[in-house]
Design a protein around this nucleic acid. Structure first.
Lengths: 264, 264
DNA sequence: TGTATCTGTTCTACAAATATGACAGATTTC
DNA sequence: GAAATCTGTCATATTTGTAGAACAGATACA
């Protein structure tokens, strides 16, 4: 009943396939910065597609800012702009702006009260349908969106701050200000695809890869007080951490380096 | 010259769009476990596509095991099988198998020596074109693939272990056994799309979202000794970590909980 | 300067995805 | 048991994606 899987998935056609292949070969160094890609004719031959299809893929790469098309010359690989963006230290939850004169702001997309969705209620330990406050925000870096945040807070706690506070302050800090004792958090990092709605708010194409972070924050009594579902653009945001190999010879193990800057 | 961006991206067609939309609404709880989806006719109307297109999306969801199609009745949402898979503690690098009678094995895909690709050479601090050993492996959980690993090691260090060792033992442990002092590591977590080659080896459809982990391991002298590029299936693998809110009232901050099990 | 190579553009032909409608059979509901 | 609703399947028209080829203009190189 579980034979060889047929390809009945909406894959996205050949041009998307070539797009992904080239994107991968650019980022893994097969075509390094400044290098000239093979000609469209040659690429078409390499991937067994028509030149029209190759051109679509190249146009998409050019739109992404990964290559530059030069009439009569060819397509050159542009430097991946890793110099920009935000890096977050996973061990301290503190985001570090690469350059200090940058600024992040937030934009509130939606704000409402209602019954908790199933997965959220389960993660927070609420009975299904319990009243929660839901807020969706987009964080901007110098005006460009880099993360999409969806938070759920039990309704009785949510009354302690205002809607406009959400545009400026992290939620757990608002809760602390309201008298709640934030004791700890548990979080999971994963990956997901951009749905049309998220793609629009993050200014990317739908189906792009996004970093997914789920965080459940608890107070001193162990009660869940916040559920955060965050989506980050991988080109503008990174999670980083340093580890040290410590312990005696027969019991060596890894341990996080807290607040490191140089790292290991 | 940079007006409103036209949609010249290979998006993947309407059926993929509907597929993504439904996948999102299932996982965010709009359609909870056991619920009946709207009829195909109705879905077609909701998303402004034809019934044929909706059927493609539903077929893909059924193939993924997210829904079950029932002739004459409708499509019901299946429980997301979170009970399976591997969870890795990011603070200790120790993967925890959810059930103890499971077993992970590895399969060697390729093994070769050659010049280091640009990004790898840069990350390892080698001169471009320096000789490295490259190995690609797939890790299996009970016979099913869940991660794709690409490692680069400077050629002079790589001679200390055999090709067959790679099928069983983590690389940094092989290096330790060979006399290298593993002192620390620095790693980044991100997200990427599955290229056709990776998709094949992980038994997923190309364009799927994958967790990406880059790790650079260094010895006591600060010399880079290993570059790991790992790709994980998000449905079978997760990164988890617990954080505690510690410190005095005016200097509260987050700190990782090491080796926690219950977490905060 | 001439030649080879490459992109930009256009055209025709074919393949695949999609829209639309229809009908049989299964399932649920009353 | 009858009616309503739903899926499974088929057929056809339309739209979109792709293949293949040709040619003009731009660029690189000897």
């Amino acid at each position: 009943m579980n034979g060889p899987v047929q390809n009945l998935q909406p894959e996205g056609g050949k041009s998307r396939r070539v797009y992904l292949l080239l994107l991968d070969e650019i980022s893994n160094g097969t075509y390094p910065e400044g290098a000239l890609l093979p000609g469209e004719q040659r690429l078409a031959q390499m991937y067994s597609v028509s030149r029209v299809t190759v051109r679509r893929a190249l146009d998409a790469l050019a739109r992404d800012g990964r290559i530059e098309k030069r009439t009569g010359a060819g397509s050159v690989v542009l430097p991946a702009r890793r110099d920009t963006g935000v890096t977050a230290d996973l061990t301290t939850l503190i985001p570090q702006l690469e350059e200090m004169h940058r600024r992040t702001t937030a934009r509130l997309l939606s704000f409402s009260y209602g019954p908790a969705p199933g997965p959220v209620a389960q993660a927070l330990g609420l009975e299904p349908g319990a009243e929660v406050q839901m807020a969706q925000r987009v964080r901007l870096l110098d005006g460009g969106p880099f993360s999409h945040l969806t938070t759920h807070v039990p309704a009785d706690l949510a009354s302690r701050y205002s809607e406009s506070d959400l545009a400026t302050t992290p939620l757990f800090r608002l809760l602390e200000r309201g008298g709640v004792t934030v004791a700890g958090a548990r979080q999971w990092v994963s990956a997901t695809l951009a749905t049309p709605e998220v793609a629009r708010s993050l200014d990317i194409s739908e189906g792009s890869a996004l970093i997914s972070l789920i965080r459940v924050v608890r107070d001193a009594e162990g009660r869940a007080i916040e559920h955060l579902a965050a989506l980050y653009r991988p080109d503008l945001y990174r999670f980083e951490m340093s580890l040290a190999r410590v312990g005696a010879e027969d019991a060596r193990h890894w341990s996080p380096v807290i607040g490191a800057e140089g790292g290991a």
